Simulated scan of single mutants.
Amino acid sequence: MPSTPALTSIGFDADDTLWQNEHFYRLTEQRFTEFLADHAEPHHLSARLLEAEKRNLQHYGFGIKGFTLSMIETAIEVTEGRVPASVIQQILLAGREMHSHPVETMPHVRETLEQLAGSYRIILITKGDLFDQERKLAQSGLGDLFNAVEIVSDKTAATYQRIFARHGDGPERSMMVGNSLKSDVIPAIQAGSWGVYVPHTHTWALEHAEAPLHEPRFKQLAHLGELLGVLEQFGAAR
């Protein structure tokens, strides 16, 4: 790690870093392919759904609502407008049920945050639907461990520069921890922060990117419990 002023702020992604998320999307997508099994093969439906999601990001943003609308759009397209109303109803119900899944925190999350709290400014930085993210944070029981919460429409270098300037001592004295190279790690490094990658078994295809292995501010962990050791290694822990 480069020699820089002491680290004072740590940002954490939420979905698939602090709690399970993509797993529920995968289960719902499987149900979606079953709804339309008479019209197309599962792999074809999944590919068409991903195309719709990509197109719709600029209109609906990230989250369950956009995913549900993309499923409906895909169903209409693959059936050439003949999708039964009963299938649309099933899709809407599946999307609604995603909002009711209990929050399942990832291993090592609470103990890691508890050990960091008080020594660093801890910031939750997540993107997606405001209502859904607030619901998951409340149900997680982790809310009191954060000094600040930022729910944003997207994550870019400018996003991290703004947030770490607002809640910390600037990006050069901050770290971002998350499971997405594209959203959590690379733009944070571009902003001047450290980027810590904690891979998840399931990562949305649109979040994939090449790991910046040659960046001195990049670190990869097997799980969140290794974060304290990383902080000690470059002398940032206090």
Rank of each mutant, 00 (worst) to 15 (best):
Pro187Lys: 06
Val185Trp: 01
Leu142Pro: 13
Ser100Lys: 11
Glu114Val: 08
Gly118Tyr: 02
Gly170Cys: 14
Ala148Glu: 13
Arg166Ser: 13
Gln133Tyr: 04
Gln139Met: 10
Leu227Glu: 06
Glu134Pro: 15
Ala117Gln: 11
Ile186Lys: 01
Pro107Asn: 00
Thr159Val: 04
Thr159Ser: 06
Ala117Tyr: 03
Leu231Glu: 02
Asp154Lys: 06
Ser119Ile: 11
Val152Pro: 04
Arg162Leu: 15
Arg217His: 14
Thr112Gly: 05
Asp184Gly: 05
His208Pro: 15
Thr156Phe: 10
Pro187Thr: 05
Val230Met: 10
His99Thr: 11
Gly170Phe: 08
Ser153Arg: 15
Gln115Tyr: 02
Ile123Asn: 03
Asp132Pro: 11
Leu113Asn: 09
Glu111Pro: 07
Met175Leu: 12
Leu145Gly: 13
His200Met: 01
Glu232Lys: 15
Pro107Phe: 03
Ile123Thr: 06
Asn147Leu: 09
Leu116Ile: 01
Phe164Asn: 09
Gly170Val: 07
Asp184Arg: 02
Asp169Gly: 11
Asp184Asn: 01
Val109Leu: 04
His214Phe: 08
Lys219Ser: 15
His108Tyr: 11
Leu116Tyr: 00
Ala157Ile: 13
Glu134Lys: 14
Gly195Pro: 04
Ile123His: 00
Ile189Pro: 04
Gly229Met: 12
Pro199Lys: 01
Leu145Ala: 10
Leu213Phe: 04
Arg162Glu: 15
Ile163Glu: 15
Gly192Ser: 03
Ala158Leu: 12
Arg121Ile: 04
Val103Tyr: 00
Thr203Pro: 12
His101Leu: 02
Pro216Ala: 00
Glu104Thr: 13
Val109Glu: 05
Gly118Gln: 09
Asp169Glu: 14
Tyr160Cys: 03
Ala158Ser: 13
Glu210Asn: 14
Lys182Phe: 04
Ala222Arg: 04
Gly192Gln: 00
Ala157Leu: 10
Thr105His: 06
Gln190Lys: 10
Ala157Tyr: 05
Pro171Tyr: 01
Ser180Asp: 00
Gly168Asn: 01
Gly128Ile: 05
Leu137Pro: 14
Phe164Trp: 05
Ile189Trp: 03
Ala158Tyr: 05
Trp204Pro: 05
Ser119Gln: 14
Glu134Ala: 14
Ser174Ile: 01
Ala157Asp: 07
Leu145Ile: 06
Ile123Trp: 01
Val230His: 05
Thr126Ser: 09
Ser193Lys: 02
Asp169Lys: 10
Gly170Gln: 02
His202Cys: 14
Ser140Tyr: 11
His202Asp: 15
Arg135Glu: 03
Asp184Trp: 07
